[in-house]
Nucleic acid binder design. Structure first.
Length: 465
DNA sequence: CGGAAGATGATTAATCATCTTCCGGTGCATTAAT
């Protein structure tokens, strides 16, 4: 019985949602996709079958810091046969690992590392018990233009003699799930999708021309940890200098080196910093249960990213708030970046069509590699298609901003779900607040005090009865 | 495109208004020059 194995290896007596399904299906030799919230035991989905099967388990992970965290967590549980394979290792250490693969049970690596010929050819001669892709939504999010190696995973899988594959992620729209399937999984793959709904997180968009004051007001009323997302690094730092006069605050973005990042993440998790100003670089793999509020000081570029970011609040199931501060034209920064990206692509396209490739950017070099795999036309077509989809995603983000109905319903429908649970709180305010319990709505004057929300909600529940 | 910082100009010397310039997300791996 699987429960016996569960107890034997992990000392748990019960599976959590999705885990048993994953283990059963993987042991039968079928591919599996699990959409489960962070902190719900995703890693057990591959760790348990790993112990019940012969061979090494490959875990493809997007960030080096994630590999290290996962390895540390294995080691904490007494597992010594884990190893990371990444660019921080010395050349001789990498070679050692590749030549002694049978000493290891868990190998964590990036898609870039996996796609290197020397790595692939060494792995090829071993029996791969399980091929795991963690944060599998990266296939869709980054997989074409930014980190194209994510779209080569199927090729890698074939080279490894089609091992049983597990895709793991916390949020995915129907479309993203389809992309993961077609780019990675067999046709008969089984999926288990938990709801992405968080009834304890209120959703609001605040139209304002005085963001800084609104932000300070929200922070002054805040009772716990708060994440503040900005669109650019510069804005993150500016805001940090504005806030540090009055609050204990830190900042985090992709320009920081890895040791600084790790330090800040630790300080935030351990409550040495109540507030953290950051770009979208912050968050993956962060499992802090008591983030009480996620504020968007700038507009995110898609509802996928928005959902990921607000999904970091209220993991402890206690009441939390997601507040988006919007000002007319906030989307312009994203238009600009999309336009930059388009120029880079068009230049690349021109050069490759005229066979005059020189002075390529780092990204363009990668694209050149991809044209060799998928063919020139096919890959260029993909790049262009991807660009159009990004534009569409930004438009849908704006639709959400201007949506007049229940925001939770809108967001859920984007992820292919219906509003089924009665939310603890679901509010909105454009000067006035709109609160909804189930499908019933009521307007009232906004007050930042938590008690005000609760009183009104209580009253509405009574009225419903 | 928009915001911010720096530069210029005009007035009546240190301040204000206007103009100009600059810059912009997400990460892997590898390599060349310190």
């Amino acid at each position: 019985m699987l429960e016996t194995a569960l107890y034997r290896y992990f000392h748990y007596t019960k599976f959590r949602p999705g885990q048993k399904e994953a283990v059963t299906v993987l042991l039968q030799g079928q591919d599996f996709m699990a959409v489960l919230p962070t902190g719900s035991g995703k890693s057990l989905c591959y760790q348990l079958p790993a112990y019940l099967k012969d061979g090494v388990v490959l875990i493809v992970t997007p960030l080096i810091s994630l590999m290290e965290d996962q390895l540390a967590s294995l080691q904490k549980n007494g597992e010594k046969r884990g190893v990371v394979l990444n660019g921080n290792l010395k050349e001789e250490d990498k070679i050692y690992v590749l030549n002694h693969l049978n000493k290891y049970k868990f190998v964590f690596l990036s898609p870039e590392m996996l796609m290197q010929e020397k790595v692939l050819s060494r792995l090829q001669s071993h029996h791969i018990a399980l091929f795991v892709v963690d944060e599998a939504h990266c296939i869709s999010q980054w997989g074409i233009d930014f980190r194209p190696e994510y779209r080569n995973l199927k090729y890698a899988k074939q080279r490894l003699n089609n091992p049983v594959t597990l895709a793991l992620t916390a949020t995915a729209t129907a479309k993203v799930k389809e992309e993961i399937k077609s780019a990675l999984l067999d046709k008969d793959a089984v999926e288990f999708c938990d709801s992405v709904d968080r009834p304890n997180v209120s959703l609001s968009v605040l139209f304002t021309r005085a963001k800084l004051e609104e932000l300070k007001r929200l922070l002054s009323a805040a009772t716990g940890s708060v994440l503040i997302y900005c669109a650019t690094r510069k804005k993150v730092e500016e805001l940090y200098y504005q806030l540090k006069k009055d609050y204990i605050v830190g900042y985090y973005h992709g320009g920081l080196d890895s040791s600084q990042r790790r330090l800040l993440q630790q300080q935030f998790i351990q409550d040495h910093l109540q507030f953290l100003v950051c770009t979208s670089a912050f968050g993956m793999g962060v499992d802090k249960p008591d983030i009480r509020m996620v504020i968007h000081y700038d507009l995110p570029d898609s509802l996928e990213n928005y959902m990921q970011e607000i999904g970091r609040s209220g993991r402890d199931q206690k009441d939390s708030d997601a507040v988006l501060l919007y000002q007319l034209q906030d989307e312009k920064i994203h238009y600009f970046m999309q336009q930059q990206a388009q120029q880079e692509r068009e230049l690349f396209e021109f050069q490759i069509r005229h066979q005059a490739v020189k002075n390529l950017t780092e990204l363009q070099e990668k694209w050149l590699q991809q044209t060799k795999i998928f063919g020139k036309d096919a890959f260029l077509e993909k790049l262009e298609q991807n660009e159009l989809e990004k534009k569409k995603k930004l438009e849908q983000m704006l639709e959400y901003i201007y949506y007049k109905g229940c925001r939770r319903e809108f967001l859920l429908s984007y992820f292919g779900e219906n509003l089924t649970k009665v939310p603890n709180r679901c509010c909105d305010y454009h000067g006035l607040a709109k609160i909804s319990v189930g499908l019933k709505e009521k307007e009232f004057h906004f007050s930042p005090k938590k008690d005000a929300w609760q009183e009104i909600l209580l009253k509405m529940f009574k009225e419903e009865k």
